[in-house]
Design a protein around this nucleic acid. Structure first.
Lengths: 232, 232
DNA sequence: ACGTCTGATTGATAATTATCAATTCCAATT
DNA sequence: AATTGGAATTGATAATTATCAATCAGACGT
């Protein structure tokens, strides 16, 4: 793999502390590919052949059972995904598709596992990444089981608002259909939830949202760092 | 720490491949304590000072927000918990309490992190353990978002049944109140769900369950390895 | 055996969420 | 400008789940 992205990849938390001797062969074996929107990259149940890194675009992790589909996570640069399956040499538990044109770095699983054995700094980064992913899942679980749909939406809006500068406006990261399944509700209910939030200063204009009564919205949402902080 | 459990602890997947030189000091710093039922061991939001290992008994991981409480996991020997918080040196995201008299091994966080740095085999075990925990959370997320309450109960019964020998009977691992919140429903609804499952051969007698129409129950539950297999 | 307590169940009702159908909106074409 | 197709919204209704209240059952101690 050769590309102008190499320096930025090198700087990712996962690779930053790796020795050059171990980084170079890892990337040599990797592919950097661009995919159009709505392409399914991986399918749950398949063996995990590659560790994926989102370099550009948006990826949706989703799962299907009983004819129902749900979204589990939305990934933006620079996130890895299915690290756990790669490390356990197991099958994928989630499927992944591009939501927009996306560039994905794919590193063969065995190379990742080999580098883990050889490079202690990489091993440390892997563990931090994995622990973070675990904690994100725990938070999502709490979000899902302890909050109503409206509360989940309110908190998501507050989080996006904060992430995007906190100037009173925010842009939704995907279409509302995907947002709905991500929040664990139907598109129809999401529409109604936005309606319910109108008295709390939520003005919707397509994918652009204005929050005019932050205080009120926060009172409703009751955000807590133990669910809503990305970092911790 | 001195005890007759030392050999069995040594055999746990997490420690089995560790060098004796690294294992001994890790356990020297650890505590093995017995707790009565209904004791809260850790509280979400507190800094993660110890890695916990259930040596005996049952532990419930739970979380509270908005005045609601939910159970996230039930742990039996020999499971570790809050590994992620320990590795990230972060606060607990979940609280833990004993459900019955339980013996817990507690290893100071910094010793775990130090051993991770020093012992490559331990590092590998940690990663496998963490990856497994992550995948368990993903499965639980899918279980929660893709299934109705009755389906979740049906699948849990099938899983317990298989774990306990598959002879047509099974014992619930905790009281029904805890079981209900674990399944993401109210105790009242769990009662009714059991009622709904009666035509599918589910006979309830306190915590003892008989499954007399396995085929029918499986048709309803539609279990899938991508949610219900512990191992994968 | 008796009361007492907690957990479990049942009934009645309300709140939440899903489903189905029908528009409406909007952007991309022709 | 008209057309078209997908997304979004809205309305009507149903299913699911929660809540509140009351009762019941069993374990426990006296």
């Amino acid at each position: 793999m050769r590309s102008e992205e190499l320096p930025v990849i090198r700087q990712l938390a996962l690779f930053a502390n790796m020795s050059e001797d171990n980084f170079a062969p890892l990337l040599q074996a990797a592919y950097l590919q661009t995919f159009p929107p709505q392409v399914q990259l991986i399918t749950e149940g398949d063996p995990a052949d590659f560790l994926h890194v989102v370099v550009e675009g948006t990826i949706e992790l989703f799962a299907i059972a009983n004819g129902r589909e749900t979204a589990l996570q939305l990934l933006r640069p620079y996130s890895t995904f299915i690290l756990a399956a790669v490390l356990k040499d197991a099958v994928y538990l989630m499927s992944a598709r591009t939501l927009e044109k996306s560039r994905i770095l794919m590193i063969p699983s065995q190379d990742v596992r080999a580098a883990f054995e050889r490079d202690a700094a990489f091993a440390r980064s892997i563990v931090v990444e994995l622990a973070s992913a675990f904690r994100a899942m725990v938070k999502e679980q709490k979000n899902q089981k302890l909050r109503s749909g409206i509360e989940r939406l309110a908190n998501l809006l507050l989080r996006l608002h904060a992430e995007q500068g906190g100037d009173g406006t925010l842009a939704l990261p995907c279409d509302k259909r995907t947002l709905a399944v991500l929040l664990g509700m139907t598109p129809e209910n999401l529409s109604r939830a936005f309606g319910t939030l109108k008295p709390y200063g939520v003005e919707v204009n397509g994918g652009e949202i204005r929050l005019t009564k932050l205080r009120d919205l926060e009172t409703l949402a009751k955000p807590t760092p133990l669910i809503d902080d990305i970092a911790t």
